[in-house]
Design a protein around this nucleic acid. Structure first.
Length: 346
DNA sequence: AACACGGGGCA
DNA sequence: TGCCCAGTGTT
């Protein structure tokens, strides 16, 4: 049996039952693919259900506010996905009369849809012969063919895309694409794959050469940078606090946080007090500043390690531009802030 | 080509 | 700890 036949046969026996496998509705497939970018099925599944529940069609999504979309996306990370998803929905409704793009080339014009996602949607929904290359495909192909070109190099991207495009079954592109991804996720796993039960155990180059654990090759990424975050958690007499919207570049764009003072190193009480005054964050004469977490909280992102302190600022006056503490749950916040709110007794 | 962008899970 | 995850957009 050839590669494609063996693969699809394996898939027919081993595939998981997942909600987006029960439909070819492009809106549903699109939503699932965006959610699953750099995200494991287990983590993305509840978000998929929640989004379809709240926004059953592209029209519902387009009519929502971005804040609503971000709130529903809260905790999933890579928030540009949510912003782009919403912008693309509005584009489809307003500029394309609600008609979903039905081919690779036009799908690519949607914000947040790159080569992978355009290939996935066009193949799954419209039977276009467009091979997907995601992390699973890189791993499966690099091992089966014994290819050591770094997968995160432009050379590797081209090489693997071309190979996948040669292998794809032109008669059933949707099955092939989903099969190879599922194979990578369930059988040809990153660590400790069960090669003894693999349908390719007799032809896999990496297995013959005993280099399965060395593939795929990936160029190392830079180490995470340390940052020092100090959040000011205001509590006023009139049961208010202050949240600010993050604008501009960087992490958590358009999400909310407590007023932030970033320092070069861990701040002590005096330093923090001085900086807060200098930045005009403490106008009230009567306030009481206390450190909430004695042990600095370390929140780890892919490229940043955030050493975080929450400073409680009690003021015995009213907060003009604050928000009611009871309304805090309506704002989309990073999980770092969300965890604090959950734990802290206002 | 290199980097930024989250958060969870696993060995 | 380090690596991985149904990647994309920016510089």
């Amino acid at each position: 049996m050839n590669f494609s036949k063996t693969l699809i046969n394996w898939y027919s026996v081993n595939k998981r039952i997942l909600p987006w496998r029960e439909t070819t509705n492009p809106y549903c497939i699109w939503l699932s693919e965006i959610i699953l970018q750099q995200t494991q099925v287990k983590q993305g599944l509840p978000y998929y259900e929640a989004f379809l529940g709240k926004f059953p069609s592209v029209f519902h999504l387009a009519n929502a506010d971005e804040a609503q979309v971000l709130k529903l996306w809260q905790g999933l990370g890579y928030y540009s996905r949510a912003r782009n998803l919403h912008a693309a929905a509005k584009f489809i409704v307003n500029d394309l009369k609600g008609e979903f793009p039905n081919n690779y080339k036009d799908l690519l014009k949607l914000k947040g849809v790159g080569d992978y996602t355009a290939s996935a949607i066009s193949s799954i929904c419209f039977n276009e012969v467009a091979a997907v290359v995601d992390g699973n495909v890189y791993r499966a192909l690099s091992r089966y063919f014994g290819i050591d070109t770094p997968i995160n190099s432009s050379k590797g991207a081209k090489e693997f895309k071309l190979l996948a495009q040669e292998l794809i079954d032109a008669k059933q592109p949707a099955e092939f694409n989903q099969a190879i991804m599922e194979f990578g996720a369930m059988q040809c796993k990153p660590k400790n794959p069960d090669c003894s039960s693999c349908p390719f155990k007799d032809s896999c180059v990496a297995l013959q050469k005993n280099i399965v654990s060395e593939l795929p090759v990936k160029i190392k990424s830079a180490k995470a940078k340390k940052k020092y975050f100090n959040f000011l958690v205001f509590i006023s007499d009139d049961k208010k606090t202050v949240l600010e919207k993050r604008t501009g570049k960087g992490i958590w764009q358009n999400l909310y946080q407590f007023p932030l003072i970033e320092t070069k190193r861990e701040a002590n009480f005096e330093t923090l007090l001085e900086l807060a005054k200098k930045q005009d964050l403490l106008k009230s004469v009567n306030f009481e500043l206390t450190l909430y977490n004695k042990d600095t909280l370390v929140h780890k992102l892919s490229h940043q390690h955030l050493y975080t302190k929450f400073w409680i600022v009690k003021i015995n006056t009213n907060l003009e531009k604050g928000i009611l503490i009871d309304d805090i749950e309506n704002y989309a916040v990073p999980i770092l802030i969300g965890n604090f709110i959950e734990k802290f007794e206002f």
